[in-house]
């Protein structure tokens, strides 16, 4: 099979497993996410354990790939270029963007992954949220392209 075709299938599999993980953990449900963000109410710590479970699996493999990358000539198991972020600076867009994201997250209980999964489940309110989120991403794209061309 052609390499890039294989990469389409593996990306689909990764998205599918990600989706099942969000459903199994309850994180596709905004009310459960808000139960975590509501420290002053009766608190549902589940989201912290979702993060712990994900990082518990991810961390050893990310560290392994980081260490072996050169030995693997920068190629993944199916021959794709391994692209990992290299930036280490803490800049304004990182901080301000994260704060803006956190406010939106707290208002509706949705972050991007769960919004798309809930859209797949046919929840009409999730479709509305996801449409607005895509609009926000589109606005960012237009603004950053304009900035780049100045």
């Amino acid at each position: 099979m052609h390499q890039s075709k294989l990469s389409l299938i593996s990306a689909f599999a990764a998205g599918l497993v990600f989706s099942l993980g969000l459903l199994a953990s309850g994180m596709a449900n905004p009310e459960k996410v808000l139960g975590f963000l509501d420290l002053a109410g009766v608190w549902d710590p589940s989201l912290a354990l979702v993060m712990a479970g994900a990082i518990g699996v991810g961390l050893p493999v990310f560290q392994l790939v980081g260490a072996r990358r050169e030995k693997w000539r920068g190629l993944s198991l199916i021959g794709e270029n391994i692209q990992l972020p290299t930036r280490r600076d803490i800049d304004r867009p990182l901080v301000i963007g994260s704060l803006v994201f956190g406010i939106g997250w707290g208002l509706a209980g949705f972050c991007p992954g769960p919004a798309i999964v809930a859209t797949g489940a046919g929840a009409i309110k999730a479709v509305i949220f996801t449409a607005a989120m895509l609009a926000g991403m589109g606005i960012f794209h237009l603004l950053s392209r304009r900035q780049a061309s100045v």
Binding site: A11, S46, I78, Q83
Partner: peptide, 21 residues
């Protein structure tokens, strides 16, 4: 279910990292 679902999410990130890079 939070830990198990989280582990699945971790597995998904590992699949995309190891195969797609």
């Amino acid at each position: 279910s939070a830990l198990a679902g989280g582990a699945l999410i971790g597995l998904a990130t590992v699949i995309l990292l190891l195969l797609n890079g």
